[in-house]
Amino acid sequence: MEIVWGTKDLLIAGQPYQGFPILLWDSMESCSQANQFFRYYLLRGEIGSKQSWPSTGRALYDYFSFLQAHELDWRNVDRGEAKSLVAAYRDYCLVTCELGRNTTRQRLTYICKFYEFALQKGWVTRLPFGHEERTVKRETSFLEHIDSSGGKALVNDVMPRCYKSLPKFLSMAQTKSLLKAADNPHHRIMIQLALRTGLRRNELATFPLAYVFDPDKAGRNERNLRVLLDPYDGSGMETKGSKERQIWVSRKFMSELYRYVSKVRGERASLGKNQKALLLNHLGKPYGSAGKSLNRIISKIGKLAGIEVHTHMLRHTYATHTLVNLQRDPQNGLDPLVFLQRQLGHGSIQTTIVYLHLINEMADKAVFAYDDELNQMAEAA
């Protein structure tokens, strides 16, 4: 019996859901328990972004495939072994597959949620894992002084302990090498857009042509220009959680984007119909909204430059260098962390603080004058 994972466009309660995760047995019979869980877990809003839905399907697919390969039944929670099914899968991920702790934790989160749902439905007699008290890091709040938990919480005992690593970013020397290796002007502007704005992968892929304008004709003399990322303005813009936000783009880079649209983009735009996205592939079509092909291009250029890089690392690079510059030269009493949080679209300031921890450990002074050096590179190109 073979397990197949995929996605399917569904109509549930009159609402269309594209790319909904689905598990199949023998490519014919639906795995009803897993798919009932998908409908319950995803449609109740546990995961806000539909872009993250496939990872839930892949987690369960991999778990069921592991069980099948070892001739184990997912319902056998009282198997009498020292190691539970979920614990065995955890060790398989960490030891055999050498997956990262965060990747393993993400998979186990969905699997544990599935078993909790299965227990409620009576499909299993008990959970194949227990709970233990661990010290957890909580977000600070004004009620912190009356928190009696002592920083302790009950967590699933199968979860590997979390050792949060600091994000990786490019130095200025690496950034120069990456841009130098991007001899294709379409790829170069793609990298520049990521480095100048800190947009996520799907935001880069769907960044609209309509957001680019000639700053010299806008009647504004500001050094930096506001751009509203609005998923509901009909431009095709996608943001995490479909949340609207404003970002700042330097006037100089907006001019560069406008020159690209006026003199270079037409080479690809002429190959297809009118496309809303700024970035088009070699066929004149927009990149997929997940941004995977875009990521492959950036990784390939990185290899040419001798750098291991992915799209999200460019976001980290923007955030790290921008925070250093803002702390070095604060403007108009602007809070660097709050500005960066809004620019990146973080729901919590705690997510942004990781960059503060990062720069506190840095000793490389080459991160200073980041935007000025990018401007010099753009002028020399």
Rank of each mutant, 00 (worst) to 15 (best):
Met237Cys: 15
Leu23Gln: 06
Phe20Val: 06
Met28Ile: 11
Tyr232Ser: 06
Lys50Pro: 09
Arg101Asp: 09
Lys176Trp: 07
Ala173Ser: 13
Trp5Ser: 15
Asp62Leu: 09
Ser148Met: 10
Lys217Glu: 14
Arg126Leu: 04
Phe142Pro: 00
Thr317Arg: 01
Leu166Ile: 08
Tyr17Arg: 06
Leu10Asp: 02
Arg101Asn: 14
His131Trp: 13
Leu127His: 05
Thr135Trp: 07
Trp248Ala: 13
Gly6Ser: 14
Glu238His: 11
Cys97Gly: 00
Glu98Trp: 06
Leu10Arg: 14
Asn156Cys: 13
Gly272Asp: 08
Met362Leu: 15
Leu326Met: 15
Ala380Asn: 14
Glu46Ala: 15
Phe142Arg: 11
Thr317Leu: 03
Leu279Thr: 06
Arg220Leu: 10
Arg107Tyr: 08
Thr352Gln: 07
Met172Lys: 09
Ser32Arg: 13
Pro167Asn: 08
Val95Glu: 15
Leu11Asp: 06
Asn221Asp: 14
Met377Glu: 11
Gln36Tyr: 07
Glu379Gly: 02
Leu294Gln: 09
Trp25Gln: 12
Lys164Gly: 05
Leu283Ala: 10
Ala277Leu: 06
Val158Ile: 15
Leu99Ile: 00
Arg101His: 10
Lys8Gln: 12
Val367Leu: 15
Tyr63Ala: 00
Lys50Arg: 15
Ala269His: 12
Gln343Trp: 03
Leu60Asp: 04
Ser235Tyr: 10
Leu358His: 10
Leu143Val: 08
Lys243Cys: 07
His186Met: 10
Gly302Asp: 08
Phe114Ala: 03
Phe114Leu: 13
Arg315Lys: 12
Leu42Thr: 01
Phe142Ile: 15
Val77Glu: 03
Trp123Cys: 05
Trp74Asn: 10
Arg296Lys: 12
Gln33Cys: 04
Phe213Thr: 08
Arg58Ala: 05
Ala269Arg: 14
Cys162Glu: 14
Gln120Pro: 00
Lys285Gln: 15
Leu43Gly: 08
Arg245Ala: 01
Tyr232His: 12
Glu81Trp: 08
Thr135Leu: 13
Asp9Leu: 01
Leu154Gly: 01
Leu72Val: 01
Leu229Trp: 03
Ala366Leu: 05
His310Cys: 13
Val124Arg: 01
Glu29Pro: 00
Asp233His: 02
